[in-house]
Amino acid sequence: MPINSPASPRPAAVAAVVVAALLTACSGGADSPGSSSGERDDGAATTVTQAGLSRSLPDDPVRMVLPTTGAETRWTQGLDVFVQQVARSAAVSCASERGVALPEAVPPAFIRFSELPDLDFIARHGTSASAPVPTPAAGPTATRTATPAVQRRCASEGKAAADALRDLYAPLQQEWFGELVSLRRDPAATRALDALPDCLAEYGIEVPDEDGFFAVADTHMQTAAPADLPREGRVLGQAYAACMRPVEAVREPARTRLLSRFRTTHAEELRSLRGALLPALRKASAEHGVSLVFPAP
């Protein structure tokens, strides 16, 4: 399921170890991420709508790289998926030039972050749902599969295309996520998390902590009937979102203060990122036929 426990992250799309440790499988309006509403939805709603997609960029591209809220991570997710698709597109083009095809690959997915839970999204769509990742237009279909040597060469070309983008922001992003980990020791956030089990118990979920919730949610979703998965996921998501809002009410201001200091100490790198990131993304989009899109509730 696409939402993971913060303490035991499952495989994630971002390669850096410190980033992977933060990943879990997940603003204003429906078109752009913004701040959470704080609305408590206690109902076990039976109608589950599919998440949509947005092309709306943030006012500052740095927000794609250094998110401070769960809603802002929608931009981060979109950036990560875009880079993965660029890598695949470059590799496929390499094989196509040689008249061969690459083996099927696992498609990318929008992966949410445990350190920055997108509570509005989770409450609306559940613990396991995410927005669908659009598939880039397919090129000519080859009948022969690439040899292992060609597969390695084309994979290398794909990696180079992705690294040309990641190198612009990944070192700074990894450092920022490392800073976020420090908030786990924040006394106010710890006290807020200590109240989580009592809140979840009001929804009939008896667990000792946040990790326990995700263990129960995983088991529940794995054993539910397929037709019940969307509704069951949303019931769990509503409970989690409602009980985590007091925690995020403490953590979001702490992240904002942390980011303010981070911006001061990394001013030169951020100026460079602002000037380079969007032009590089537009160039890669035109060259590889990949669109930059983001999950949207």
Rank of each mutant, 00 (worst) to 15 (best):
A161S: 06
R10N: 07
V150F: 01
P9R: 03
R112Q: 06
E210D: 14
A276N: 07
N4M: 07
T145W: 04
A239Y: 11
D209A: 09
R257P: 01
D163C: 01
M1Y: 08
S96F: 00
A224L: 15
S8E: 09
W75S: 00
A21F: 07
P140E: 12
D59K: 14
A227S: 13
G28L: 04
L53F: 03
F121V: 11
L57H: 04
V17D: 05
V86P: 01
R282C: 02
G212E: 09
R261T: 05
V247W: 09
L196A: 14
R231P: 07
L165E: 05
L22M: 15
S285Y: 02
S35K: 12
R245H: 13
S8G: 04
R10A: 02
A109H: 02
P230V: 00
P103H: 11
E287T: 14
P2I: 03
F262G: 06
G212S: 07
D198I: 09
Q238P: 06
A249S: 14
S54Q: 06
A138D: 15
A170Y: 01
L102W: 05
G99P: 01
D41F: 13
T265R: 10
H220V: 10
G78T: 05
D118P: 03
P297K: 06
V100Q: 08
Q174Y: 01
A254W: 01
C26L: 12
F121S: 04
R191W: 07
D118E: 11
D209Q: 12
A224I: 10
P187Q: 14
Y240K: 10
A225E: 13
V207A: 06
P140I: 02
S54C: 12
A160V: 11
V86C: 08
R153K: 12
R98K: 13
Y169I: 00
Q238E: 15
A201C: 03
D211A: 15
T265S: 05
L53C: 06
L183K: 07
A249D: 12
A129R: 09
L277Y: 10
I205K: 12
P197M: 13
A138K: 14
P9K: 07
Q174W: 04
A296M: 00
Y240S: 03
D209T: 11
Q222Y: 10
F110A: 03
C94Q: 07
S130I: 02
L277F: 10
V150Q: 10
T49E: 10
A225R: 15
T145P: 03
A44H: 11
T147E: 08
D120M: 09
F110E: 03
E97Q: 07
Q222M: 13
E104L: 03
P103M: 09
L200E: 11
L229R: 15
P148F: 08
K159V: 05
A137M: 09
V83E: 11
S182K: 05
